[in-house]
Amino acid sequence: MSHAYTREMHPLAFVVSHWTNLCAMVFLTLSGLYIHYPIFPGFMGAARGTHNFWMFVLLINLVVRLVMGFTLKTSKLAGGREKELDIKNFLPQAENRHQLWPTIKYYLFLKKEHPLGGKYNSLQKFAYVLTVPLILLAAYTGFALWGPTSQWSFFLAGTTMVANWFNGGVGGAALMPMRIVHYWTMWAILSFTFIHVYLANIYGFDADRIMFAWKETGTDHA
């Protein structure tokens, strides 16, 4: 029943990780757009440096977050303090299956009642899991474009495959289709972010308080 946000739901390490993700996304998007087209002069070196730096930060943060998922415990329930391994709250579980379709219907205004969910509803779980391959795709396509790694056969294979889809030629010419895929990946991540920000704030701003400031809300001793 609880609408509370407890520190057991989102431990400090996750708050730091969330901040890191936010910064990385902002810097990667802005520097990436600048590299795509330098709308004003003067910052190409800076933009490329920024892009490279935050790419590593984002990747390392992803790894750290996944490791934490398997090692840290978080609260089992929304507003709860009793904990279990985080990954069980994060990954979709068999028990979530019956919630998925009703949740979708709720958000399509086909159903009045929101099914009871855990800390995350089942739709949310799918969306969060999707960010992992999206970030990996962004990283893979990025490495395929980056001078020092673009000739590694692991990345070259992807470049060639993408170029074939787009009738795009081989060798250097194949980099452009890959660049386009990299660019689209950014839009996919941005689209996720839009939805995420929207849903996180549509019922109020308590989620922001816990995720950004680690402030509990709605609990007995708030």
């Binding site: 029943m1 609880s2 609408h3 089992k76 329930l77 929304a78 507003g79 579980q93 028990e95 979530n96 709720y106 958000y107 205004f109 009045k112 009642e113 929101h114 009871l116 969910g117 855990g118 800390k119 689209s191 839009f194 939805i195 929207y198 549509i202 019922y203 109020g204």
Partner: peptide, 30 residues
């Protein structure tokens, strides 16, 4: 995506869901 969310927000407001956080489970299914 942004436009769809805008429309969705209007829908949420119209159905009175805006600001009314759905209840959550008080015990996990398993």
């Amino acid at each position: 995506v942004a436009a769809a969310l805008g429309v969705h927000a209007i829908g949420m407001a119209a159905t009175g869901r805006l600001g009314n956080m759905p209840d959550t489970e008080d015990v996990k299914e398993h």
